[in-house]
């Protein structure tokens, strides 16, 4: 019988108090901290971090919105306020390397923070998980078997087109030994879930159809029973799209970290 251990998630402040620095800062993001569905992804990712024994920490209550949604919505002023405040905090802790499960946080910290004085090595959790699997630190066994299950991956715009990361999440899914199927619009031609550019926080403009429904139809058309995503907003949109088509009992949306934690038997 395997036993369960209570996790005490370490913070940067605790490391600093002991005069130490972790190897990597896990940037949780607003969705990972507050959205009930995505909190499960955060927890799954922390289980993986604990399992492989990497020295990590989070900012905890010192973390604040990256400012990304404000920037996409045109509010450059608010974005820069947020960014500079976060940079001050992270530079004070001498942060060097950041991992995050949110492509939007990933993109803005990696690409837009350097102009404002924040220079870090930033990796998305898909790349991080890919490395763990390649290094054999995660065996992807001992838990739920996904063998033969039909999975389709929905590309996040801010991971894919924005940063050319297409293979890492697919490599992670390949480790599940599942039946991976592609949607017609995938990789560089992937269709947005509809949440980007701050659409997440507003009603769509008038039109014929919601974008997430269009995308969910495409995903359901592959016959997959699992839609894998790697972005909190894609997850919300795809979930809603699947519900719109009354398929929520047959098709589930999971983040790649949840699938790995589950296959590894960590939950």
């Amino acid at each position: 019988m395997s036993e369960k251990r209570l996790i005490k998630v370490p913070t940067m402040a605790e490391y600093a108090a002991n005069g130490q620095e972790p190897e990597i800062l896990f940037w949780v993001g607003c969705a990972g901290s507050f959205d009930d569905r995505y909190k499960r992804v955060t927890r799954a990712f922390v289980q993986i971090l604990e399992h492989v024994g990497v020295k990590y920490a989070v900012l905890g209550t010192e973390e604040s919105c990256t400012g990304d949604p404000a920037k996409r919505a045109g509010n450059e002023f608010l974005f820069q306020m947020q960014a500079m405040t976060n940079i001050e905090v992270m530079n004070a802790y001498n942060v060097k390397k950041i991992v995050t499960a949110c492509p939007h946080c990933f993109n803005t910290i990696k690409n837009e923070y350097p102009d404002l004085g924040g220079n870090y090595e930033v990796i998305h959790h898909s790349t991080f998980l890919q490395q763990l699997i390649n290094e054999g630190k995660v065996a992807v066994q001992g838990g739920e078997s996904f063998k033969g299950k039909r999975i389709t991956f929905h590309d996040s715009c801010y991971l894919g087109r924005a940063n050319n990361i297409y293979e890492a999440p697919r490599d992670v899914l390949a480790a599940l030994d599942a039946d991976l199927v592609e949607m017609k619009r995938s990789r560089a031609n992937g269709l947005c879930c509809g949440a980007g550019g701050a659409q997440m926080w507003k009603e769509p403009e008038p039109g014929k159809k919601d974008i997430n429904v269009e995308r969910a139809e495409e995903a359901l058309g592959t016959g997959a029973t699992i839609i894998a995503s790697a972005c909190p907003f894609c997850m919300v949109m795809m979930n809603d799209g699947v519900k719109n088509k009354n398929q929520e009992d047959n098709v589930k949306v999971f983040d790649i970290a949840e699938l790995i934690a589950s296959a590894e038997g960590l939950n």
């Binding site: 395997s2 036993e3 209570l6 990972g32 949604p69």
Partner: peptide, 22 residues
Amino acid sequence: AVWAFPASDRFNWADELYVTVK
């Protein structure tokens, strides 16, 4: 935060979190 949650709740996701020891 993008939603109307108090900043003091930002770390609540970490409560009662367990991992299976293999």
